[in-house]
């Protein structure tokens, strides 16, 4: 089985008004299909930067990065977009739902960029909302839903394209602990179905539930542990 994502000596340096800020300084990491990986680390250690790279939202300034077997350095922004659409699902701390759009149309959004027709999009989005337990919220807009419900909508959106990897950057960061637990439980059930889950968290307890853990500091992986 080929790895979903392979990072080898990946670095990312930001250029801030001529001053180079190294956010990642050589990170190697492999994500296999069905993995459950937690990334922890202090603020500013480069967790989000790494997630953006793994998800093909950004490109490394050094090292090589393969997503779905393809080296991202040779891809155009359009090809990167297609790659994200086909292989990656993102879940963000702040949900990032379209405000004036119903839960169903939010979930259906990735399918728009796949060129799938409206009817099928809606059917698949409705089904996916059912799987995250939101069948009764299909026509609700984000401001008519709780934070936990919004994050479930975001998860449904991440899954609707059938990605092989789900990248979640502090998905429970804006939720109370009970709601956070249920969102985690949802992610874990999806992982059990074979979707690789990569989770960034500040919470050691949350991290401990994952199969693998990575600790980051100053743009480097300082320890790896398996459960």
């Amino acid at each position: 089985m080929t790895a979903a994502i392979v990072a080898t000596g990946v670095s990312r340096t930001y250029d801030l008004d001529g001053v180079s800020v190294p956010a990642l300084r050589g990170v190697s990491l492999t994500i296999e299909p069905g993995d459950y990986l937690a990334i922890v680390g202090t603020s500013g250690s480069g967790k989000s930067t790494l997630m953006h790279l793994l998800g093909g939202l950004d490109r490394p300034t050094g090292g090589t990065l393969l997503i779905g077997g393809r080296d991202v350095s040779g891809l155009t922004p359009g090809e990167m977009a297609k790659l994200r659409n086909e292989t990656i699902g993102f879940v963000f701390q702040s949900f990032h739902l379209l405000a004036r759009t119903t839960a169903r149309d939010n979930v259906a959004l990735p399918l728009v960029y796949r060129g799938i027709g409206r009817r099928e999009r809606r059917a698949r989005a409705t089904e996916m909302l059912g799987r995250v337990g939101l069948s009764h919220r299909v026509d609700h807009r984000p401001n008519q839903m709780s934070g936990g419900e919004q994050q479930r909508v975001a998860i449904a959106r991440a899954l609707v394209t059938g990605p092989s990897v789900l990248l979640a950057d502090e998905p429970t960061g804006n939720l109370d602990s009970a709601t956070g637990q249920s969102v985690l439980a949802l992610l874990e059930s999806l992982n059990a179905e074979g979707v690789a889950v990569v989770l960034v968290t500040h919470d050691r307890e949350v991290a401990a539930r994952a199969e693998h853990q990575i600790v980051m500091r100053d743009g480097l992986i300082v320890s790896e542990a398996d459960a």
Binding site: A81, K82, R84, F90, H96, L98, Y113, R114, T161
Partner: peptide
Amino acid sequence: TREIGLRKAVGARPRD
């Protein structure tokens, strides 16, 4: 801008 970022994250190409 945030909406554009989100659309891109879920697969919108620059052209879209």
